[in-house]
Simulated scan of single mutants.
Amino acid sequence: MYPQNNMSFMPEEDLLYTILADMKRTVREYTTATTESNCPSVRQLFTDLTNDTLRLQGDLYRLMSQNNMYSTPSKALRIDLDKQIQEARKTQQECQQFIQQKSFAAGGYGQPMHQQSQSSHQHNPYYM
């Protein structure tokens, strides 16, 4: 399809960067589809697609970084990360309390919500 003299239609680095950017966009689209899905099986499908695409994106990023095709962002201070995590957990807890209050008021009688274990992120290789 392309000439055999190692010339492609665009430099490999540009092609990989384009693919990486498309994977980021795809993850956003899958995440939106997941959050808007009403059917549990469709929601699970988009959750699986999101996770698979995140793994591929992470693999491609590492490959590009190892080959000096993508500069790594500056390292974040642990205290800043901890602060963001704490704020996200507080927001999540407030949302869960709000939902439980509204469920109780609507006749759901405050059935416990599914809570994700805080330790679940410890086994995720992409979690910092």
Rank of each mutant, 00 (worst) to 15 (best):
R28H: 12
A105N: 06
G108N: 02
Y109K: 00
P40H: 13
K83G: 05
L45S: 00
M69Y: 02
L45I: 04
R25I: 00
L60K: 02
R78G: 06
H114V: 14
P73E: 14
Q57D: 03
I79L: 03
M64R: 01
Q115C: 04
I19Y: 09
V42P: 05
Q84S: 14
M23N: 07
A88E: 08
E87S: 13
N68W: 05
S103M: 07
M64D: 02
Q96D: 14
G107N: 07
Q97G: 05
I79G: 11
A33E: 00
Y109Q: 06
R55S: 12
D14C: 08
Q86V: 10
N67R: 15
Q86C: 12
R55T: 13
H114W: 12
R62C: 08
K102R: 13
K90S: 14
Q66P: 04
Q101P: 03
P73F: 15
M69W: 01
M1E: 10
P3D: 14
M10I: 13
Q118V: 11
S41G: 01
T26Q: 00
G58C: 02
A106R: 06
S41Y: 09
C95K: 09
T26E: 07
Q118N: 14
R43V: 01
D52G: 01
G110H: 01
Q66Y: 04
K83T: 03
T18Q: 11
Q66C: 04
M10N: 08
F104C: 12
L77C: 12
T26S: 03
N67Q: 14
A106L: 10
F98E: 09
M7F: 15
D82A: 15
A33D: 04
D48W: 05
E29M: 07
A76P: 05
T47L: 06
Q101G: 13
Y17A: 15
T34Q: 03
T32G: 05
S65V: 06
Q111N: 04
N51M: 09
F98W: 12
T32H: 12
S120H: 09
T72I: 04
T32M: 07
T53Y: 04
P73N: 13
M10G: 10
Q93C: 06
E29Q: 07
N6G: 11
T26W: 02
M23R: 00
T50L: 05
S8G: 15
T18N: 14
